[in-house]
């Protein structure tokens, strides 16, 4: 830059330190006040998957390391693994119980009656189509529909809990109707507590 220009600039250029520049700026300082990790969070600097996968990977080991509670929790675990309570499926964007689901729920109600020591959790799931939020509500409707029906068959309401996973936990990761048909489901889990 030439001298004339520089002189001209001297008058116009506001020599601001970054701090005063920040103060002059209307919007929140972007770099100086970043949204940072919460205290209980791992550092957010270079996100990596490893830690998360480790945590998940530990679960089976924890289960093995609890021989004390074998009678209750391992029986529930065993029943869940064996799938004695059957899944039910739904049509796209629907939460009404299909005739096949009603038959399955009848069987599940009878099975639940055999294990009065366990609580029951119903998980509602959706296929991958549609947005996260709508599917959360849809999954909740599906879980609740099954819960209401089980209660009508005599399952004690107080032993029931429901949770929706929306489209977050697909059973089949495929992107076609046969995968989606499996994903639209309720799962029934015994809880030993």
């Amino acid at each position: 830059m030439g001298h004339g220009v520089s002189r001209c600039l001297m008058l116009l250029v506001l020599a601001l330190s970054l701090a005063s520049a920040l103060a002059a700026c209307k919007s929140a300082p972007p770099a100086e006040a970043p949204v940072t990790s919460a205290p209980d969070f791992t550092s957010g600097k270079t996100p990596k998957a490893e830690k998360v996968e480790e945590t998940t990977g530990f679960k089976p080991a924890d289960t093995q390391a609890e021989p004390v509670n074998e009678s209750a929790s391992s029986l529930a675990e065993k029943l869940n693994t064996q799938g004695v309570l059957k899944r039910i499926n739904f049509d796209f964007d629907k939460y009404d119980l299909r005739p096949d689901a009603i038959r399955t729920l009848g069987d599940n109600a009878a099975t639940v009656k055999q294990y009065p020591q366990f609580k029951l959790r119903i998980e509602g799931h959706c296929d991958e189509r549609g947005t996260v939020e709508y599917n959360l509500a849809l999954g909740e409707k599906r879980a609740r529909a099954a819960g209401d029906y089980l209660v009508s068959l005599g399952t004690p309401a107080r032993s029931l809990s429901i949770v929706s996973f929306g489209k977050e936990r697909p059973l089949d990761p495929g992107h076609n109707e046969s995968a989606w048909a499996k994903d639209r489901r309720d799962e029934f889990i015994f809880l030993a507590e």
Binding site: P34, S37, G44, E168
Partner: peptide
């Protein structure tokens, strides 16, 4: 992030992406 989903924040142009949750 693996089997988890975490919240991130980035500049409007995609630069300087940063994870802000880490509960797995």
């Amino acid at each position: 992030v693996g089997k988890a989903k975490e919240i991130y924040v980035m500049d409007y142009d995609g630069a300087r992406s940063k994870r802000i949750t880490g509960n797995g």
